[in-house]
Design a protein around this nucleic acid. Structure first.
Length: 402
DNA sequence: GTCAATTCACATGAAAGAGACCACGGTCTAGTG
DNA sequence: CTAGACCGTGGTCTCTTTCATGTGAATTGACGA
């Protein structure tokens, strides 16, 4: 009897079809051939980049917009098109795309310039050289022949936040030192306020042109999902209402198309795993939970020990009472925990920063409040969904050997 | 009761140190012809 | 003679510490009605 069941299980496993045809159409790395609802922006970027083809320097461009509004895709698409045309007419045009958020690659001045130099075929060691040496190498590489170079700096706000705005100053003034080559910069930022915090001189030269990407609305997201659905899923693998629900979820999160695509993909994976031959609305809810849970688990597992100790201290405190926690309390528990674990405790100053970072990561909710006479502090609560809580705790305990 | 001064418990900033990692050039050492 | 091992120096980067300054409302206490 049992054997029979197993048999039929395997039979059905073989016969079971995946809801997907090709998943990669749903991944954020995929650049579609046509970009929906961004005609205006494409036209604007094309206009700005057009002088490239006459070997004139295009204006620097600054692109803003929240995450998942298609900034990166649109810029990459347009620059690729320009590059194609330039190549056809053998114009020396080079596009350098760099994502400044990638850790260990382009998140400091040195690394950025080093990475750019590498794109010109120069080998730069990951460390050990003075920064101006690397600048020199970069200059020489640029100036080696007549060409127009477009530097696309994605998530440029992250870079500035970490490394200061001196880089931009140097880059925007780079043309003054170059005789043969010319450089234009396209900066892409998620942070709309970011430009207000940089040096006005840099601001004026960097954002000769500006372009804002408004969020997609739910209907536009639906259309985007529908256009990808055709290629990614088998016919009829999506139950009615699923696309709408996905779009609604994403529209709630400031029109984030990337999120909608992720959601759809994960929902498909869940449907596959459950042996369903159709993606249903319940799968979307599951996917929503899974995405959030996975993100949190990954963060918790990959962050340094001290972060984990702090987080575990919050766990301990949370168990004992339900009121919001304060920095001082957490620090006391943290110190004891350190003693128990034979970890050397950090200062309260540092813990304050760590708490702020945990807040940024969305693991905790920290709000600076003033309790009047009783001082100023952070009011802290965990913001990890209840269903991932045990898993997170497990990870912490195994990683800290508790 | 009203109002400004006080006060608390941290937040927030700036600067500097420690330690890891790395390149480069000079010196030493062992193997080779 | 030469390739490779082994320093010392000088550079970046991350994580911390130290020192200094900032902050917002409950509390306090003087003042006037």
């Amino acid at each position: 009897m049992v054997a029979n069941n197993l048999d039929s299980y395997f039979e059905s496993f073989i016969n079971r079809k995946s809801v997907f045809i090709d998943k990669h159409y749903l991944q954020s790395s995929y650049t579609p051939d046509t970009i929906l609802h961004r005609d205006e922006q494409i036209k604007a970027i094309a206009n700005i980049l057009a002088p490239l083809l006459k070997l004139e320097r295009p204006s620097n461009l600054f692109v803003y917009g929240k995450t998942g509004t298609g900034k990166t895709v649109t810029v990459r698409y347009t620059t690729a098109q320009v590059h194609n045309v330039a190549e056809k007419h053998s114009r020396p045009v080079k596009i350098c795309y760099l994502n400044c958020k990638l850790k260990k690659i382009a998140d400091t001045e040195y690394r950025l310039i080093a990475e750019l130099s590498r794109m010109f075929g120069k080998a730069i060691p990951p460390t050990g050289l003075p920064t101006d040496e690397v600048y020199n190498i970069f200059f020489k590489a640029l100036n080696s022949k007549e060409q127009v170079v477009v530097l696309v700096l994605d998530e440029i706000d992250q870079l500035i936040k970490k490394a200061g705005d001196e880089i931009l100053y140097n880059l925007t003034r780079i043309n003054e030192h170059l005789e043969k080559a010319q450089v234009a910069i396209i900066g892409i930022s998620n942070d709309l306020m970011f430009v207000d915090n940089i040096d006005p001189r840099i601001k004026s030269s960097l954002s000769e042109e500006e372009l804002v990407f408004p969020p997609y609305n739910a209907i536009q997201i639906q259309e985007i999902l529908n256009s990808r659905k055709e290629k990614a899923f088998r016919k009829g693998a999506i139950a009615p209402g699923v696309i709408e629900k996905c779009a609604a979820y994403a529209a709630r999160e400031h029109g984030d198309a990337r999120r909608a695509l992720d959601l759809l993909r994960v929902a498909g994976e869940i449907a596959d795993r459950l042996g369903s031959n159709r993606v249903n609305i319940e799968h979307i809810d599951e996917a929503e939970k899974k995405i959030e849970g996975d993100r949190i688990i990954e963060i918790v597992a990959s962050y340094p020990k001290q972060f984990q100790v702090v987080l575990y201290s919050i766990f301990l405190l949370k168990k004992s009472h339900q009121d919001p926690l304060y920095t001082g309390e957490i620090y006391e528990v943290y110190k004891q925990l350190c003693k128990k674990l034979a970890v050397s405790p950090l200062t309260q100053r540092r813990i304050s920063d760590i708490l702020a970072e945990l807040d940024m990561l969305g693991l905790i909710n920290a709000k600076v409040i003033s309790k009047g006479r009783y001082g100023r502090t952070r009011e802290i609560s965990l913001s990890i969904p209840v269903n991932t809580l045990p898993k997170v705790k497990e990870i912490l305990e195994s990683s800290l050997h508790i």
